[in-house]
Write a protein that binds this DNA or RNA. Sequence first.
DNA 1: CGACGTTGTGATAACGTTGTCGCAACGTCA
DNA 2: TGACGTTGCGACAACGTTATCACAACGTCG
Lengths: 342, 342
Amino acid sequence: MVTLSDVAKQAGVSPSTVSRVVNHSGFVSKDVADRVRSALVELDYRPNIVARNFRSKTTMTIGVVVSDLTNLYFMDALRGVEEVLSSEGYLLLIASSNNEVAKELQYCAEFDRRRVDGIILASAGASGNDLAQVFRERSTIMLLDRIVDGAQFDCVLDNNNEGVRQVVQYLLSQGHKDLGVVSGPLQITAGGERVSAFEKFANQAGLQIPLEWSWVGDAFSMEFGYKAATKFMRLAYKPSAVFCTNNALTAGFLLALAERDVRVPEDISVVSYGSLENGELLATNITEIEQPARQIGRVAAHRLLRRIRGEDVPFEVVRVDPQLSLGNSVKFLKSVRDVQPN
Amino acid sequence: MVTLSDVAKQAGVSPSTVSRVVNHSGFVSKDVADRVRSALVELDYRPNIVARNFRSKTTMTIGVVVSDLTNLYFMDALRGVEEVLSSEGYLLLIASSNNEVAKELQYCAEFDRRRVDGIILASAGASGNDLAQVFRERSTIMLLDRIVDGAQFDCVLDNNNEGVRQVVQYLLSQGHKDLGVVSGPLQITAGGERVSAFEKFANQAGLQIPLEWSWVGDAFSMEFGYKAATKFMRLAYKPSAVFCTNNALTAGFLLALAERDVRVPEDISVVSYGSLENGELLATNITEIEQPARQIGRVAAHRLLRRIRGEDVPFEVVRVDPQLSLGNSVKFLKSVRDVQPN
DNA sequence: CGACGTTGTGATAACGTTGTCGCAACGTCA
DNA sequence: TGACGTTGCGACAACGTTATCACAACGTCG
């Protein structure tokens, strides 16, 4: 391997000077710089980034832990993060916990040991205590999509209340009064907030969500969506519309319906929080909340940069508004004018 | 930060001894080890991996560059890679080139500078020269899915010939004789091999693929699939079946058909090389080649490990057999017995 | 002309870890 | 008993880079 000293020897200068040229840190005369540059090219010098990181105590690397790499939502968020950080010269270390809390913590610890400059975490369920322990001295952490209590961290996520408000308003406007909901764990922010907002807005319109129409599972997985749909289909008296609080749940739900030839929206109306992969290919275009994933990623990245730069901003929860995208998965029952939640 | 020396002082031993305990390298008596271990816990020592990597010249990190992180195929391959390497203690550095050759080379160079122990690359089109230049001294590289000529690298990919053989055989068995094909660039292995195999097996059955039924685009993208379908729909005399050589192409192709209410398989039969995301939700189940992505990832990872360990195996192209999965996207025209390619 | 700031360069010391060596203590075998 | 291998531990150097000085050369301003 060619080192700085090799180049220095070749150019007849000191390693310090070569370092200054490589890092564009100035204080080098034009002709010396030229001599060094040609030596660099001639020897095909490649900086040893590990040595640099070691000495400079900064790695220009950000670790990202998501709970499910195959989920479109996280991919979009990741894209937003990448946009911002790579333009600032950072490299992303990406890891997927596959919804396993232990793995999530393990990756976080590994990133911390590797001295990444910052960590972005879409937590699958680690407790505030766990995280505080892993991140003892670190302040450069940004949570995505999930608020962890018992610990001081920033968090960037959907304005779930607003998204769900739009969902309920739309369902009511189409005349639906028998509403069901499918969700992952309520301890997870996405679950808890969306379900309780759903109930809240339903209540405000004078409706109740009966317990047997509320399917809350142990994960935001296709598997549970599928299971919920099978339970739904066995009901004697069914809701006219079902709200799935996450795209994986929706996919599973729709799959089970399709297998039993239950049609959407003829037999059941469906609204999804979050977009489906290849959703545009489905026979029925799903009415869904388009999450501002990319924007969330961008905001998180920017905020993380500020922390890395040492700005002492207070910990905060940042909300980004999602938007309802109309499809044809909700059947029009009858026009309702006077019901307008909020 | 707590360092080895801090722990050493606390335990009343030398840093070397602490290092030996941390790394389980033996030659430490039981009671000294215990003393060190309690000091480690007491001070909450966390090894500085950067320093370790620097000194030991090994990072226990593998860089993976894929051309499209949103593609199910690469996600599966990644999973295979991860399975093997993480069990050996390696961490994955994942980057997506988004089909941009420049970005792909940039990431490779960055990984190389960061002294990753190995690189797995699903190339979007870099030339052998480019890669040879980036990887001057490095031998620990594994190519996925694409053979790059003009350079000495291992490569693990589909047995495209076998997959396409099954596709053609099936189409013939269903009585199809008017065959079309949609593909990305032929210079990319997946394009070149699949298209030429398709033509070969068609020819063997006495069929020709006319030029106007062969759509070859500039990328394996949904956009081009869409474009191909619009061209297809404008034809006066159309093929009865179309073979899309990649899942993204298939998705685009189907989307354009759906928008014009062209039905599959009633109006046109479609076979895809590679599975669609959420394919099980589509109205028609696509007949497709299931690529052995995970297995390919695993094989590549194992082979890479051997190279990292210094085994001097010759460069090789490894093929893994894919499998046809029958759906209902191919219309049965009439039974044909005697046509059996190969 | 002297004081002072700016610019250019090199010497030197780290950064935290691991590899190598030296040495001592101990056990084993001839 | 002496030679030799094994085990346990510490001293020390080294990895390649950058940060910090020190210092010289030069220009500028009062």
